[in-house]
Write a protein that binds this DNA or RNA. Structure first.
Lengths: 203, 203
DNA sequence: AAAATATTTAATCATTTGATTAAATATTTT
DNA sequence: AAAATATTTAATCAAATGATTAAATATTTT
């Protein structure tokens, strides 16, 4: 392989293919996504796609691993930060998460499609069990409210945050245009922590 | 076509095929689902599947329409009930919804897969806009808290309720076995209304 | 310029898969 | 039993699609 050219702002061909793969995989799902579509979306041809990534499956695995990695490179450090309070963590987790999702709104549905194919693999990648038992975030939660199940708490926090992105295709028509939708998500950055803190204070 | 036999508890062949279709479509996604798999799952053969439903696409449409219908036959009447208070509605909506989802846990992911294929069609089927402007539920919400955006409110309510089912493959390993997971969902029937009411009271 | 690398073009393969068909067998209904 | 209906078996089609190849052209690097 090779990777030169990178003319100014342009992406490397490898990057172009990966970006195109995400677009097409997200829109069509793995099974419906055709390598020809991906090549077209990337502005290159089928032969080159296979030249770079050998197969559709390999391309998918690479792209998925990268995205899941990005997902947790944003969240991971926040969960283990010893220097911030629980309330501060809530603010930052929701803010960073939504910011990242606004930049990559396709990510939840894309990752979700992976669930079907190999759920245990995704669970392992996410290291969920470890975060649940070892993270500072969960410990701080237990200190404050030992009576609240961390899983229930997380389901609610993640549900409130992720659901608008998962259901976007159905929800957006209700809110108005794309800009309006983004504005709502910005609002949620403040709303969700505010509401979650209510649960912590009085639930 | 024909539909007799229905020996005792057994399903009609047509029903068996539809049930099998849901299982396979949910597990594999539309594109990855093979009609041969569906036939095998139903315990019949490919020729018969096409004899009954003519094509894979028709089978999918029929099955999807039925499920979406079921989804809202549960929720619809509650939203428009003039005789119950907002708090009572919250209790019942969450309870009925989770009860139904426990019986059909595959439904959210199945319906979600439809989003990709034809989001506007799903939005229309759900009549979301109408419910948002005309339902008693939303009117009661506006009376109580005109300062809370109904969409934000719904995103949170639905997110808290649906997300555990969408993310089940990843979340369940964290909670223990299937029974434990169901027990958690039963707990949520009380938790979610309790937490949502906090928002209504003090958010 | 020469060499190395990247990309395209175009043709072709093999496999998968949705769909169809006809004939045989089973089951239910009349 | 006869007729109608349901289901299976087995073979086959045609289209879609992932993958490969070789040769031509373009671009970058040395």
């Amino acid at each position: 392989m090779a990777k030169q050219k990178k003319a100014e702002l342009d992406l490397t061909t490898e990057e172009k293919i990966k970006e195109a793969a995400i677009v097409v995989f997200t829109k069509k799902g793995y099974g419906n996504a055709r390598t020809r579509d991906i090549a077209e979306e990337a502005g290159i041809n089928l032969a080159l796609l296979n030249y770079y990534f050998r197969s559709k499956e390999k391309l998918f695995e690479i792209v998925m691993a990268e995205r899941v990695g990005k997902l947790f490179s944003v969240l991971g450090p926040l969960l283990y930060d010893e220097t911030t309070s629980l309330d501060e963590k809530l603010d930052r987790i929701v803010d960073n998460y939504i910011t990242m999702l606004l930049e990559h709104p396709e990510l939840p549905i894309f990752v979700l499609s992976e669930i079907r194919n190999s759920p245990e693999q995704l669970a392992n990648r996410l290291n969920a069990r470890q975060h649940l038992t070892e993270s500072v975030f969960i410990k701080q939660l237990a200190e404050k409210r030992s009576d609240i199940s961390p899983i229930h708490f997380l389901m609610s926090l993640l549900g409130m945050t992720l659901f608008p992105f998962i259901g976007k295709p159905v929800l957006q028509p209700l809110t108005g245009g794309e800009d309006h939708y983004k504005a709502m998500m910005e609002e949620r950055k403040k709303l969700i922590p505010k509401w979650i803190k209510l649960i912590l204070e009085e639930g």
